[in-house]
């Protein structure tokens, strides 16, 4: 390698460095010279996530109460058959059953209220939220809309059940699909596992005014591996 060429390379690199610095400083679209760390913050305090957790625990409590009431009912039936003459005892048992039924109803009411509250809070959040598969499944179970950001060929090869395909690489072409969606609803974006189009699309949607967008990071690969509903 000749020495002159090496000196010229150094000159070219220096000119590049200076031009880059001056242009970036004067550019209205300038960026930081050193980027901030891009962190995926899987939400632990999201309102809807909390509501679904509460709902889950309440559901378990309600199930156990119903089970308890069922077993009590069985024992009551036996008692009634064996001791038909003991009407006072039967009345007491009926009272206790009624109380259990009331507590189940109260638990169900509380569950509905917490979901309603969470849905009311939905409009407050704009920044997309990073989620893992457990929460994605919970949102799927609540019938929220999943948006597949992969290309049509990948989508057709397999996707989360009921998902809508909006290939982010052709977003201008599919923008109308996004425009048709109500902006105050909950959406979950995903792609495959090693990809970023779901993140790009979520932020694109947030900029469009969508109020609640979740990014399912495990994507189609993790969903498929878990054996969850797919088309």
């Amino acid at each position: 390698m000749n020495k002159k060429a090496l000196i010229h390379i150094v000159y070219i690199l220096l000119i590049t460095l200076l031009a880059g610095i001056f242009f970036n400083i004067s550019n209205p679209n300038r960026i930081q010279f050193v980027a901030n760390e891009k962190r995926v913050d899987f939400s632990a305090s999201d309102s809807l996530l909390n509501a679904l957790r509460i709902q889950d625990s309440l559901q378990k409590a309600a199930d156990s109460l119903l089970k308890l009431s069922g077993s009590r009912e069985d024992s009551l039936r036996l008692a009634l058959e064996k001791h038909k003459q003991d009407s006072i005892l039967a009345a007491n048992k009926t009272d206790s059953l009624k109380r259990i039924q009331d507590s189940v109803n109260a638990a169900n009411q509380k569950k509905e209220d917490s979901i309603k509250n969470a849905q009311n809070q939905v409009t407050e959040i704009v920044k997309p939220v990073d989620i893992k598969i457990d929460f994605a499944k919970a949102l799927f179970d609540k019938k929220y809309r999943f948006l597949d950001a992969r290309d049509a060929a990948d989508f057709n090869a397999g996707h989360i059940q009921g998902a809508m395909n909006i290939p982010f690489h052709e977003i201008e072409k599919y923008k109308d699909r996004l425009n048709d969606l109500p902006k105050d609803q909950v959406y979950v974006t995903y792609c495959s596992a090693a990809c970023d189009v779901s993140i790009d699309m979520a932020y694109y949607m947030a900029k469009m005014g969508f109020k609640k967008v979740y990014i399912f990071h495990g994507g189609w690969d993790e969903w498929k591996a878990a054996g969850y509903p797919a088309n």
Partner: peptide, 9 residues
């Protein structure tokens, strides 16, 4: 990530 913006510039 520290090098990404520099390279982009």
């Amino acid at each position: 990530y520290q090098l990404v913006n520099g390279l982009a510039i």
